[in-house]
């Protein structure tokens, strides 16, 4: 009789693909190498899981990062400003940890950088960071 212990494929894939997923550490350490505002970061990702791209401004002095401003993407190319409803909410800690790792080590190479991350559910997602 064989028994089965399952492991999450996505968790393993996180190791494989060099995803930033995982740890939930904050943005401590060196300040990010980005322009204008050292305390916040603008990213584009599907924050609410509706398969639309959202524009999210994060407070990176908190751990995990919390939402400062949020524009939910709408089908057809429009945004809905939901800042009042979601301000102060922490984002997925795994995504936050990945972003913190990236921001802490970034050298401001590109204006727009795509990161593969794995969220806490083990699902892969791609986040665009504007530096």
């Amino acid at each position: 009789m064989r028994r089965f212990l399952a492991i999450g494929a996505a968790s393993a894939l996180a190791l494989l693909a060099g995803c930033g997923g995982g740890g939930g550490s904050g943005g401590g350490g060196e300040p990010p190498l980005q322009a204008l505002d050292q305390q916040s970061l603008v990213v584009q990702m599907d924050q609410n899981g509706d398969n639309e791209l959202d524009l999210v401004t994060l407070d990176i002095s908190e751990s995990p990062f919390v939402i400062l401003e949020c524009l939910y993407g709408l089908p057809g190319g429009d945004f809905d400003d939901v800042t009042d409803a979601v301000k102060g909410r922490a984002i997925d800690p795994a995504v936050s940890g990945a972003l913190a790792t990236y921001v802490g080590g970034s050298m401001g190479v590109a204006d727009r950088t795509e990161l593969d991350v794995t969220n806490s559910n083990g699902d892969p997602m791609r986040v665009v960071v504007f530096e």
């Binding site: 009789m1 064989r2 028994r3 089965f4 212990l5 399952a6 492991i7 999450g8 494929a9 996505a10 968790s11 393993a12 559910n121 083990g122 699902d123």
Partner: peptide, 18 residues
């Protein structure tokens, strides 16, 4: 041992025996 690891999908992963 009489158990094995299998790859399962995302959030459905877990202990499937025992």
């Amino acid at each position: 041992p009489d158990y094995d690891f299998i790859i399962s999908e995302g959030r459905d992963a877990g202990l499937a025996g025992g």
